[in-house]
Design a protein around this nucleic acid. Sequence first.
RNA 1: GCCCCGGUAGCUCAGAGGAUAGAGCACUUGACUUCUAAUCAAGUUGUCGCAGGUUCGAAUCUUGCCCGGGGUACCA
Length: 600
Amino acid sequence: MNSFKCITELETFLRRKFSRAVFPEDWSIIPEKCPPEMTGELTVNCFRFAKLLREAPDKIAAEVLTFFAAHPDIVRAEQIKAFVNLTLTPGAVYRDSVGRLEALFAGVRLPEDRRQCVLIEYSAPNTNKPQHLGHVRNNTLGMSLASLLSRVGHEVIQINLVNDRGIHICKSMLAYERFGAGVTPESAGIKGDHLVGGFYVKYNAALQLELAELRQARPDLRDESDEKLFLETELGRATQKMLRDWENGNEQVLALWKMMNSWVLDGFERTYERMGIKFDHTYLESETYLLGKDIIAAGLVRGVFQKRADGAVTVDLGKMGVKVILRSDGTSVYITQDLGTTLRKYSDYHPDEQIWVVGDEQILHFKMLFEIMKKLGYPWANDLHHLAYGMVNLPSGKMKSREGTVVDADDLFDEMTALAGEACRERYGNGVSPEEIAARAEIIGLGALKFMLLKFNPKTTLLFDPAASVKFEGDTGPYVQYACARINSIERKARDRGIEFDSGSIKWDLLAKEEEKALAVTAFFYPQALQQAADKLDCSGIADYLLELAKAFNRFYRECPVLNADNEELATARMALCHAVREILTNGLNTLTIEVPEAM
RNA sequence: GCCCCGGUAGCUCAGAGGAUAGAGCACUUGACUUCUAAUCAAGUUGUCGCAGGUUCGAAUCUUGCCCGGGGUACCA
């Protein structure tokens, strides 16, 4: 990890001074940014290592102060209680941060012995409906996590597991059979997943109608749940029969299933492409759903699982209770296939760690899954991780595909890019080609959406307010992109005017203004932001960091003219600073899978 | 009932046991013949759900309670 020279030297000093303390091998002091109301750029917080040094915090701070009083990199050091605030010489600020950009970026990567092979499963859509905002959050979290982990040095495998079979798939199939009249995505001019999703909604409307009629005719059933009454309806029985036919390999049903699934998968492919998602492999549940049964048979022999009198296979999970993992009729339940695919993914890729990006309503499911894998004695079962994220709600309440009250993913992309395009046209009018406007709008619109979703901690249940979320001002992706665009513009103009800088001969000492130093110090913390995010499997800190850096840049931009600086040496030094900031902002946004337009 | 997650400004959310609890939005005001105003500057905003405990120090750890969400299937 990158560090300031004076801080590294402080570490050496403290190790020697407090030699009776036992320092961990990798002990290091992480300086903090000095709060704005205090004088200085960095703060050393002595509370943090007072216990380690077995000394009173303010006494340590006094030692730290004397150390810095004589340090050539320090202009001013001030002790307040256990805090020591440092004002660095400009030379030191830049030498240890933006002055060595390669070192800064190298500091992002973990040491080799900590790099792993990580398998991430995310998205996992059903092929009975198009994706909505909830899937967009899942996709965004998954792809950004994959991107982040590979950036810090891990080998990452991205997996999708498509749920392409089961009763809910039969529902849209049956509706198509009855109401479809042979329509296709081509004939209707509708994206395949949307076409199929329409039949899913039709199915549920028809089912509700029949349920209402049934309750009308049979008052004794009035208080039963929809699920209980499912097989009492003609539609329900027909759906059940279709599922059986599918499992028995009925050719007609299989043909319909294949056709409709291919429509949906084509549609998904376009959605993924627009988001920039590329999976290393896509498993289909129709090919993996039987996998768990062998594991269960083997576990039964070894006594890990028990067969109940009625034939169901169970496992005793102690506090979590007894879990059925195979039905009494021998068919598999949800967790059966996850047992199978977990093992399958392991034997296909031998990852050091597996991560599932799945909603938080399935926390218990994954706890059980991991516990069962441990009981089965797989040594890698300790390296399974569920990244549980919260639901996305609308001001009107929850999204429900069945009722069609969802924010559709593709529609939302269109809406965001249309608004971004409008904003571009307002600025540039006819000065820029429609193709260029469209390209920028795509980057800005999708960037705003992804950034908005990543800004929140994954586990928070978030409220999506369309009116507020669609904005491009304030704490947004476009705010960060805009800072890049401003720097690009400076660099373009500099080229036009023939101003160039040679990174070897920058006079960093000239950048002594508060806004300049604050910008460089903020830039310094980039590697820490990434590594912390990677440790926590949470990208929200990166979004926060980028906003902070962009904000520091905008302040600098206001106060410190670059091309119109007092002299050329100052201009080139400021250009070098801008260049570094643009590199970091771009790198950070790319880590979040957000692109940066050349101009805005 | 039991288990998990949350409750911080009008709204949406940040807050490694440490300094006077922050940001954006919203609201008020000011700044574009200037390197892009998708920007900047200034102002207003708090019983950190409630009550105890641990600590030199608690929004943060702990216990109890209140409120909201999720889970607790031979559904996925």
